[in-house]
Simulated assay, not measured.
Amino acid sequence: MQIRRCACVVKGGRRFSFAALVVTGDSKGNVGFGYGKGGEVPVAVEKATKVANRRQKPVHLQTSAQGTTIPHRVEGRFGASKVLLIPASPGTGVIAGAVVKAVVESAGVSDILTKSRGSNNPVNMVKATMNALAKLRTRDDIARLRGVEV
């Protein structure tokens, strides 16, 4: 969760508003994000959480007895932000920046390597990470699309 404070100057003085970026997930392959604004921090967080829960989407993960990672290397883009997600061997952990780490951990990924390029705007980074996770396909999905049996 990330909270930002903005000030607007009006006749009576400064008026503050707060913006919250929230990522939610069940650690079993579903993840979503939300952005909310309000006059107080709890209001902004509540709005963002509602939106995040509504926007949850499934992610294809490679689950095995040794650990959980993604099935293949993938790049996600949004605006000027680019995020590269690379599968890692069991025991590696989540090697990522704060924003990307929040998204992949909420999805249930425990072993992954990441690299971010371009803009590091938190909202765009979350959207780029979600874009990358949406591009993931399992071996069974690819085989079905090609009409081949594995």
Rank of each mutant, 00 (worst) to 15 (best):
V43N: 06
A88R: 00
A48D: 02
G67V: 05
T63P: 00
S27H: 13
V109E: 01
S110H: 03
V9T: 14
S116W: 00
V103P: 00
Y35S: 03
T129V: 06
E75L: 03
G34A: 05
E105K: 00
R139W: 08
N131E: 12
A128G: 08
V100D: 03
L113W: 13
R117K: 11
A132Q: 06
I95Q: 10
R137I: 10
L136K: 09
G25W: 01
I142D: 10
T24L: 12
A96W: 02
G12A: 14
V10F: 02
V99C: 07
V43C: 02
A7C: 09
G79P: 01
L113S: 09
A98Q: 12
A48K: 04
D26S: 02
K50P: 03
G91R: 02
D111N: 14
A96L: 07
S64W: 03
G32A: 05
G25D: 04
F18A: 04
G38P: 06
R4H: 13
F78E: 04
S106A: 15
A102T: 10
V9W: 07
G29S: 10
T129D: 01
A102Y: 04
P90D: 10
S116P: 00
A143V: 09
G25P: 09
A65N: 06
M125Q: 13
Q2D: 12
E75Q: 12
N120H: 13
V148R: 13
N53D: 10
G29Y: 09
V148D: 08
E149V: 12
G32T: 09
F33Y: 15
A107D: 06
R4L: 12
S64V: 00
A80C: 09
A134T: 10
V104E: 05
V109C: 06
V104Q: 02
A52E: 09
V74H: 05
L145A: 15
G67K: 10
K50F: 11
I142N: 01
V109M: 08
L133D: 09
T49E: 11
V100F: 01
N120Q: 13
V45M: 10
V104L: 08
A88M: 08
D26Q: 04
A102D: 12
V100W: 02
A96H: 05
R4V: 15
E105A: 06
R77I: 06
L61E: 04
V123W: 08
I95V: 15
N131W: 02
R14E: 15
T69H: 06
K82C: 01
V41D: 02
S64M: 04
K135L: 15
P122M: 11
Q66N: 10
K37L: 04
V104H: 01
G38I: 07
